[in-house]
Amino acid sequence: MSNNAMIINLAYIVATTLFILGLKLLSHPGTARRGNFVSAIGMFIAVVVTLIDQQIISYHWILFGFLLGGAYGAWKAKKVEMTQMPEMVSLFNGFGGLASLLLGWATVSGMNQLSMATTDELVFVTIFLTILIGGVTFSGSVIAWGKLSGKMSSKAFIFTGLRELSILHLLGFVAVGYLFATEPSNELWLYVAIGLALSFGVWATISIGGADMPVVIALLNSYSGVAACAAGLAVANTILIVTGLLVGASGLILTNIMCKAMNRSLMNVLLSGFAKPVEMG
């Protein structure tokens, strides 16, 4: 391990510790605000130290992207009304999912034919999962945002054949995943995978009523963590793996806690596209 990589990995350990500490503090009322700050410091360390990565040659695009996204995020966060918080979180979460999708795509497009032929199939499976989960997170979050902000009807949108459509999607995932992993140089499978993921996110969310949306957002938040974890496996980055999974696992348990608090069953919300919903609305 080169000196550079050593420094980066040590800093990643510090950042991960801060994330864990931050989450812990965030779950107690008295320390919650401090917890958020602690985890923000962790993120700052992780981002800054990544910039010394030897693979990074030029900084102007990074700076451009960061300033653009950071300014937009800050502006949105400042001006949002307190009552619109859940939909704001949903929208941010959707952007995070889309970022994972694009990262997965960039990883494939950054490989040349030669390295593609020698790369392990497992890497392409993780890239596929990144694109899949990132895509579902993005389109699902956008629908959740639309429902909460009143841009769409908040009623559960149910039609006959929804269950069959969902099952078809799942079968499609398996088939396209196999084709993509075995033949990654064929761009068609990549585009089909992106399309399928986006479309599944829409159908899975649109069939859930507005009252259940907070639970759905918590679940999609968990998904975006898993997407980051899959991206980490694809680009071999430990902090993405650990942190993504941390968010994924804590998001799932939070979804479950919220379900209980709202007297709903997690399975019912999860599988609403497959089963008849108990109540509409």
């Binding site: 993120m43 981002v47 695009w61 990074i62 451009f64 992207g65 960061f66 653009l68 996204g69 950071g70 937009y72 995020g73 800050a74 949105k76 966060a77 704001m88 941010f92 979460n93 952007f95 995070g96 889309l98 970022a99 994972s100 694009l102 990262l103 960039a106």
Partner: peptide, 11 residues
């Protein structure tokens, strides 16, 4: 991806 992730982080 950097821009979108930055929105998520900063926001």
């Amino acid at each position: 991806a950097v821009a979108l992730a930055s929105i998520n982080v900063v926001g």
